[in-house]
């Protein structure tokens, strides 16, 4: 494998939320294939700053695939071409010499662009605030082993809880639906006995918050599951639908 490759980057530039935005193209010669994608962006920004130009704004923090801060739509795919991988864990060895890479922000009306590749994902916090919790004040908890939980269910709850809230599902969905995100939380809590008392209320309130945030409806195309960097299963959306139906039928 080549130790370094030459690339062109076609990047979405947008000064602020009101700006209409446009693409700009940058030459990136001699990119080490050991670099991460974001380190390549660092190198670009370093050059832009030295040239007296405005660096490209992008969100990032932990750079180890867990905080969910990084985003980027790379060559038409959320977090780039590698399955089960966030942008920060994507390395340049997966690109070829001479390639043009197109980099865009998440595009969804519920996630307005703040600058360049940075978007506002506060809609997700609102969905959690609407019911993505178990109401237990500090100090009220019984002994942790007083309520056994079937291992299989606990493991499945973990699979759902592994969502990092990055928004790739919304960015990928043709309807800009946040159902995979929402269902992961509903599923996580519905699978545990601790979540039982608030089961009905939770799903109703969270769906209302989702719709109010301007996120779209789910039509089960499954694109979200394919692009989710944590490979959250679409079966959680099926469980969400059952929870919603159950809550609706049993309301007084």
């Amino acid at each position: 494998m080549a130790e370094s490759i030459n690339l062109k980057l076609k990047i979405w530039r947008q000064r602020n939320t009101k700006d209409s935005g446009h693409f700009e193209t940058y030459d990136m010669p001699g990119v080490s294939t050991h670099m991460s994608f974001l380190e390549m962006m660092d190198v670009l920004n370093d050059r832009l700053i030295r040239d007296g130009k405005d660096p490209v704004a992008f969100d990032h923090d932990c750079r180890e695939g867990i905080c969910g801060m990084c985003s980027m739509y790379i060559n038409g795919r959320a977090h780039g071409p590698l399955k089960g991988t966030t942008t920060c864990q994507l390395h340049m060895r997966h690109f070829s010499d001479g390639e043009t890479i197109t980099i865009e922000p998440w595009r969804a009306s519920a996630f307005p662009v703040i600058k360049d590749l940075v978007v506002n994902r506060s809609a997700f916090d609102k969905i959690i605030a609407a019911g993505g919790y178990i109401s237990v004040n500090t100090g009220n908890a019984p002994d942790a082993n007083s309520l056994p939980v079937e291992k299989v269910k606990a493991d499945e709850a973990f699979d759902a809880a592994a969502c990092i809230g990055c928004g790739a599902c919304v960015a990928t969905c043709k309807n800009a639906s946040g159902m995979l995100f929402l269902s992961a939380k509903v599923s996580h809590l519905a699978l545990l006995p601790q979540g039982e008392p608030e089961r009905k209320e939770r799903v109703m309130r969270m769906i209302d918050a989702h719709d109010e945030a301007g996120l779209g409806s789910c039509t089960n195309t499954g694109a979200c599951e394919a692009e989710c960097p944590k490979e959250i299963s679409i079966s959680h959306i099926a469980r969400l639908n059952r929870e919603y139906l159950r809550a609706g039928m049993s309301q007084e």
């Binding site: 919790y133 178990i134 237990v136 500090t138 100090g139 009220n140 908890a141 019984p142 002994d143 942790a144 082993n145 309520l147 056994p148 939980v149 079937e150 291992k151 606990a154 493991d155 709850a157 973990f158 809880a161 996580h188 809590l189 545990l192 601790q194 979540g195």
Partner: peptide, 22 residues
């Protein structure tokens, strides 16, 4: 010890054994 109780009550999916205990 109280921390573990609190977190389990919140729904933190800690690893469990087949008997259902932590």
């Amino acid at each position: 010890a109280n921390i573990i109780d609190q977190c389990v009550a919140q729904g933190v999916p800690f690893a469990r054994e087949y008997g259902g205990l932590l």
